[in-house]
Amino acid sequence: MAKLLYITANPKGPEKSKGLKIGEAFLESFLEERPETIVRRIDLFDFDMAWMDAELVSARGKLAGYGYTMEQLEEGERAKIKKMHSLTDEFIQYDYYVFVTPLWNLSSPAVLKNFLDNLFVSGKTFVYTPNGPKGLLNGKTAIHIQTRGGIYSGTPMEELETGDRYLRIALRFLGIHLEDSVIIEGFDVFPKKWPEMIADGQSRARSAAKKMAASTIEV
């Protein structure tokens, strides 16, 4: 039975967030195609996870580069690295990943970056090889649904957008197959067209959901 992790990073909630309205359309359409799918929702603004502070950075370094065992870590370090590993262990149990985020100040909300930081665990999601790092999450598929206030595509601003670009780089590094992102932009440029833009985004999201649901995965 397939499992889907639906990850959102918007504090407004589905009633006020344009992106979350579009994300819900994606999820609804996906479940119409794959009704047996187990879905887990994560709101990153209401999600308990480890943060990359001094203790966690120290714990990672000791385990990865200095030959420490888990038992040799300080109590605070051990608690935080275990929390990180717990998140990673859950993440790798899923087959599909849906990320729904806004573009804030050229990138994604900081909670998404921190969530991704928790996934970079050597031996679990990637390994080092003589030819460089290799992702271990093969056979899994992800998609990003992103809303933007400005217009970036095909403009000089395009190269400054780092939200969608970084997410795709990070997931590709881990070995995850990426579907084309669903990008809806210009909400601040055309405020009177929000209803039409949301409807268009929902239509595109539903099409993307049907495509992803039809993809073959190893369960």
Rank of each mutant, 00 (worst) to 15 (best):
L20E: 06
M70L: 08
G19A: 13
E196A: 10
P130M: 11
F91R: 00
V219Q: 13
I42R: 07
L136Y: 09
V100A: 00
A142V: 07
Q202I: 08
E185C: 06
F26N: 07
E71Q: 03
L174I: 08
E36G: 14
I42H: 05
Y128F: 15
K211W: 05
T37H: 06
L44A: 04
M70K: 01
P133C: 09
E15A: 15
I92A: 04
M1H: 13
P133I: 03
A142Q: 07
F26W: 09
I217L: 10
H144D: 03
T141C: 06
Q72E: 00
N114S: 06
D53N: 11
I145A: 01
P156I: 14
A209C: 15
V182M: 05
F30A: 05
L112H: 05
E32N: 15
A170N: 11
S17F: 08
E77L: 02
D46P: 05
K211S: 06
I198W: 10
W104R: 07
Y166E: 02
F187H: 12
V127C: 15
S181Y: 07
F190Q: 09
V98S: 02
P14G: 10
F120S: 03
Y166R: 05
G65H: 14
K82D: 07
N118I: 01
M84S: 03
P133W: 02
I81L: 10
L27E: 08
M84E: 02
G154C: 06
T88P: 03
V121M: 01
F115G: 00
E159T: 14
I176W: 00
K18A: 15
F45C: 14
I151A: 04
Q202L: 10
I81S: 06
I92R: 02
L87M: 11
Q146D: 00
G61V: 07
E179R: 05
K21R: 15
G13Y: 11
N138M: 12
L137Q: 02
T129E: 07
I176P: 00
L103S: 08
A2L: 12
E218L: 05
L116F: 12
I22K: 02
I38K: 14
V121T: 02
L160I: 14
P109Q: 08
E71A: 04
Y94R: 03
I145N: 00
T216C: 11
G139S: 09
K12I: 13
E71C: 04
E179M: 11
K193D: 07
E185D: 10
A199F: 06
T8H: 13
E179L: 12
Q93A: 05
L4Y: 04
T129N: 11
R168F: 04
L5G: 02
D200I: 10
L27T: 05
G65N: 13
L5W: 02
G67T: 11
R206L: 09
T147W: 04
Y66P: 04
L20C: 08
I184E: 10
P11A: 13
L112G: 03
L112V: 09
P133Q: 11
P35A: 11
S107V: 14
T88N: 05
D188L: 15
R41E: 11
